[in-house]
Design a protein around this nucleic acid. Sequence first.
DNA 1: CAACTATATGCGTATATGCTCATATAAAGT
DNA 2: ACTTTATATGAGCATATACGCATATAGTTG
Lengths: 112, 112
Amino acid sequence: MSKHRPLNEEALLLVAQRFAVLAEPMRLRLIQSLFDGEKNVGELVTLTGGTQANVSRHLQTLTAAHILARRKEGLQVYYKIADPTIPRLCDVVCGAIEKQLARQAATFAATG
Amino acid sequence: MSKHRPLNEEALLLVAQRFAVLAEPMRLRLIQSLFDGEKNVGELVTLTGGTQANVSRHLQTLTAAHILARRKEGLQVYYKIADPTIPRLCDVVCGAIEKQLARQAATFAATG
DNA sequence: CAACTATATGCGTATATGCTCATATAAAGT
DNA sequence: ACTTTATATGAGCATATACGCATATAGTTG
């Protein structure tokens, strides 16, 4: 997007959609819970504190976006992070937010 | 988020909010238009094809998120990208999408 | 100060989407 | 086949937000 030629409308929508998928706290919780390896739905329900229905829905959304991958094993369904760029993406955003908060804290300390 | 300890609820909300800001096509168009330097609202209206009111609102949103910075010069207001991580962020997402589309294309070609 | 220009904003509406409850599906065990 | 367990999904509700229209504000020029 910065190194490349300007995106056409279609590509732009895809980028927006991808950001939208990552713009839900519960989905971020799920992603975070999966950073240390695959887990089944029940485990994710426990870890995130969400309801089973809601967790299942969000897992659907993340899988449809090719961010997670599904693996069925008997009654359980195991999910894992399928998109290797996700951790980097999250790191970049976290870094930006940390910097922003630090700057705000500094400004507050200086002028406040 | 991956290298760091798990985020607390508050940080998680901030990350989600930041992704949400980037999840709108018009805002991505504005960001894209600003990759080659600052522009005023009128120029951005022309470049993006949006209405003045809508462009102004989205610029507000982006500025509130500290993604853009505002500079007033007479009647005009100039905006520019203030967050240096934005281009990288967009590149990461674009790269992921390109890979995904390529993989889908390959699968389609292989299996018919 | 009146007219004009550039930008911002209040308000109403339409749409999208997250959440819950109940129920469906699928797989396993008895 | 029936029951139990794990996961998915349909329906309805509540909320968020993008957009358009009209208007307000700020700054400039005559």
